[in-house]
């Protein structure tokens, strides 16, 4: 367990040292919120109606942006190779990587969501539903993204392959995420979409570490 936390701690430490990457991603996320009103027009009602979908698309695209650096550095400098002989399994390390990936890429976006909510004229209940849906759904995005990143770790310019690989798999998350955020008025449908979103996240986070460690082992061959 200690070694598990150490892996997360080191990833966070490295992310802070290379702060530019997280910042770029955050600015990308916010810029989508800025350009949408320009593209759609200043109609408050339309923007507010579309807001949950816009925020979800922005979150999806900007989490994909951070995928290329998830495993590539560790693969190139031999860290992954040496972790084969660590006292914790590659599967546990993969689980730790999902958590650190979520903390580095998804959490800053969720924290920046109020900014987008203001720009898109969201109402408070709608905003709260969106942020709950993001909290429930982004772990699945992080887990799927990590699988894509692990599969494409040996490819040159793999940064673009991982997003294309996982985009189709992310569609259910998008569907339930947007409907959970949209149906804040009718509590019934909202809660069932939320439950589905939570279930997808739990399943993805539970199974992804096995897929990731398998992909990383294959990458060393």
């Amino acid at each position: 367990m200690r070694a598990f936390l150490i892996v997360i701690g080191r990833d966070l430490q490295l992310a802070i040292k290379n702060g530019g990457a997280t910042l770029t991603q955050l600015i990308f996320f916010i810029s989508i919120g800025v350009i949408m009103p320009i593209a759609i027009g200043p109609d408050k009602q339309i923007l507010a109606d579309l807001a949950p979908a816009i925020i979800w698309i922005a979150a999806l695209l900007s989490t994909l942006l951070g995928l290329d650096r998830l495993f590539v550095a560790d693969h190139e400098d031999g860290t992954l190779l040496s972790l084969h002989h660590a006292s914790i399994s590659l599967t546990s390390i993969s689980a730790a990587k999902i958590i650190s990936h979520w903390l580095i890429t998804a959490l800053p976006l969720i924290l920046a969501t109020p900014l987008l909510a203001v720009m898109l004229f969201m109402e408070l209940p709608q905003f709260l539903a969106t942020i709950t849906a993001l909290l429930l759904g982004t772990p699945a995005l992080a887990a799927l993204g990590a699988i894509g990143a692990a599969i494409s770790v040996t490819l040159k310019r793999g940064g673009m392959v991982a997003p294309i690989l996982i985009l189709p798999l992310a569609i259910p998350i998008l569907i339930f995420g947007v409907s959970a955020a949209n149906s804040f008025a009718g509590a019934q449908t909202s809660s069932s979409a939320m439950l589905f979103l939570g279930a997808i996240s739990l399943l993805a986070v539970a199974f992804a570490p096995f897929a990731i460690s398998l992909a990383l082992k294959a990458a060393e061959e």
Binding site: D77, S82, A86, S87, I88
Partner: peptide
């Protein structure tokens, strides 16, 4: 196993690098 790739993170200090591996091993 010590190979050609040194598994060193340039952003961290020598001590932080070794602390990580001490905990991993």
């Amino acid at each position: 196993f010590i190979g050609h790739q040194n598994a060193i993170k340039p952003e961290l200090t020598l001590k932080q690098n070794l602390q990580f591996w001490a905990q991993m091993y």
